[in-house]
Computed example of a mutant assay.
Amino acid sequence: MAEGDARLTTHVLDTSTGKPAKGIPVALFRLAGDAREPVAEAVTNADGRCDAPLMAGETFRIGTYELVFSAGAYLDATAGALPEPKFLSDIVIRFGMAEARHYHVPLLLSPYGFSTYRGS
């Protein structure tokens, strides 16, 4: 894959309903030492995906990143009455990208658990 094709994408699937999770704010941060630099923000669409890659082409940089999924309001709206504080609200996934290629970092979510993997 050419460096110009490098990109970062994500999506969120609600495993408690088996449906895409719409309306979850997603923030991407680049980490360097103690610095945490904001890179991009998006909100998941009806398919649980962001409308565009969080980084692509010339904006893509190899390094260590955090994706922060602000899922609290979504869980309130879809999971019924949850105790406060919620078990999950802001979900942080820290990962590294070592090559200029397509990285896909999905979130599988339920009110009491989550998982992720390097997708394609």
Results as ranks from 00 to 15, higher is better:
residue 1 M to Y: 12
residue 1 M to F: 13
residue 3 E to D: 15
residue 4 G to W: 12
residue 5 D to K: 13
residue 5 D to V: 12
residue 7 R to D: 15
residue 9 T to N: 14
residue 9 T to F: 06
residue 10 T to K: 03
residue 13 L to R: 10
residue 16 S to L: 02
residue 16 S to W: 06
residue 16 S to F: 04
residue 16 S to T: 04
residue 17 T to A: 09
residue 18 G to D: 02
residue 19 K to L: 13
residue 20 P to S: 10
residue 21 A to I: 12
residue 21 A to C: 11
residue 21 A to T: 11
residue 22 K to R: 13
residue 23 G to R: 14
residue 24 I to S: 12
residue 24 I to N: 10
residue 25 P to W: 14
residue 27 A to M: 11
residue 27 A to Q: 14
residue 29 F to H: 14
residue 29 F to R: 14
residue 30 R to H: 15
residue 35 A to E: 12
residue 36 R to M: 05
residue 36 R to N: 00
residue 37 E to L: 09
residue 37 E to D: 07
residue 39 V to M: 10
residue 40 A to F: 00
residue 42 A to G: 15
residue 44 T to V: 08
residue 45 N to L: 05
residue 46 A to F: 13
residue 46 A to C: 10
residue 47 D to T: 13
residue 47 D to Q: 15
residue 48 G to F: 07
residue 49 R to Y: 12
residue 49 R to P: 04
residue 50 C to Q: 10
residue 50 C to F: 09
residue 52 A to N: 14
residue 52 A to R: 15
residue 52 A to V: 14
residue 53 P to H: 13
residue 53 P to I: 14
residue 54 L to G: 01
residue 55 M to W: 03
residue 55 M to C: 07
residue 56 A to E: 13
residue 56 A to S: 11
residue 57 G to P: 11
residue 58 E to V: 12
residue 58 E to W: 01
residue 59 T to I: 11
residue 60 F to I: 08
residue 60 F to Y: 10
residue 62 I to Y: 00
residue 62 I to Q: 04
residue 62 I to W: 00
residue 63 G to V: 09
residue 63 G to T: 09
residue 64 T to N: 06
residue 65 Y to P: 01
residue 66 E to P: 00
residue 66 E to N: 03
residue 67 L to D: 03
residue 67 L to M: 06
residue 68 V to A: 06
residue 70 S to C: 04
residue 71 A to Y: 01
residue 71 A to N: 02
residue 71 A to E: 02
residue 74 Y to G: 01
residue 74 Y to D: 01
residue 76 D to P: 00
residue 77 A to K: 08
residue 77 A to Y: 03
residue 77 A to G: 08
residue 78 T to L: 08
residue 80 G to D: 10
residue 80 G to S: 08
residue 81 A to R: 10
residue 81 A to W: 02
residue 82 L to R: 05
residue 83 P to R: 05
residue 85 P to Q: 06
residue 87 F to R: 09
residue 88 L to W: 08
residue 89 S to K: 10
residue 90 D to C: 01
residue 90 D to R: 11
residue 91 I to P: 07
residue 93 I to A: 01
residue 93 I to C: 02
residue 94 R to E: 15
residue 96 G to Q: 15
residue 96 G to Y: 06
residue 98 A to Q: 05
residue 98 A to D: 11
residue 99 E to W: 12
residue 101 R to Q: 08
residue 101 R to V: 02
residue 102 H to T: 12
residue 103 Y to F: 11
residue 104 H to I: 00
residue 104 H to G: 04
residue 106 P to S: 04
residue 107 L to P: 00
residue 110 S to Q: 01
residue 111 P to R: 00
residue 112 Y to I: 08
residue 112 Y to F: 07
residue 113 G to R: 06
residue 113 G to E: 05
residue 114 F to A: 07
residue 115 S to Y: 13
residue 116 T to C: 02
residue 116 T to P: 03
residue 116 T to A: 01
residue 116 T to L: 02
residue 117 Y to L: 11
residue 117 Y to N: 06
residue 118 R to N: 11
residue 118 R to K: 09
residue 119 G to A: 13
residue 120 S to P: 09
